[in-house]
Amino acid sequence: MKFVKTVSSIAKTGLIVALSATILNLTGIAKAGEDVTPYYPLKKPKYSEWSFSGPFGKWDIGQLQRGLKIYTQSCAACHSLDLVPFRSLYELGYSEEQVKAFAAEYEVTDGPNAEGEMFERPATPADRFPNPYANSVEAALANNGAVPPDFSLLAKARAPKRGFPNFVFDVFTLYAENGPDYIYSLLTGYSEAPQGKELSEGTYYNPYFAGGSAPAMAPPLSDDLIDYDDGTPQTVDQYAKDISAFLMWTAEPVLVERKQLGFKVMLFLIIFAVLLYFTKRQVFASLKD
């Protein structure tokens, strides 16, 4: 018995040591400063306000329309949007005529025709955004060896890890905007490289980039680059926000529908649970003598 007690106390001490080592290890990651990390991205994404965050989040349709404008005028030259069909632009509040006209500005390859040849035709709402490059080799060749990532799922594919204890809090705060926060931070995060930092040619220092310290993409936005016709400020900050929101929409077009259905489901389940609780009490009451 004494032996078992000794083993038990050794085990407990060991456990406490392991536990504290793990916690130190986990929290130590952020010790240098609250948003500076020893891994890429060097800085954690900045938090922004999003209309679609939280359980009752909704799209800001005007913002998504501005985002589409930024995409087509600034990003589309290099970044594809393979999974998004033109017909989904109806969700951004455009009419059938507008979407048809918008799609017709793009050329897509179709065929073969009766002569067995492929041909180009204007796109229709049923088509997807055509890729600016014929294939990834061409894309890499045109961009200093780095293939510009497809935009369809980018806001879900780029989400730097939250670390302990943030990932615990996220369950309660419902924070799920890591992706758009990352894109916004990246677009507004270009800065001078720190003293003594050598950058390879064709890269631009950006501490918010997840794939290293300097992406191969030059700062794509500048003030007054794109004309807004709704009076929204034409700043890099606003552009970055609008394109990030747009990319959240392309990545998760059902986001609002999902949250709205979720509210109904949760409400149903909670009421059902309360009713079941009282039924259960009633059933078990008969057991008490």
Partner: peptide, 22 residues
């Protein structure tokens, strides 16, 4: 299922890995 629905509808990507969207 209430707890489950909370994740399905509000935090659907919480338990997954972002790289799987590439």
């Amino acid at each position: 299922f209430t707890l489950f629905a909370y994740f399905v509808f509000y935090l659907p990507d919480y338990l997954g890995h972002p790289d799987n969207y590439i």
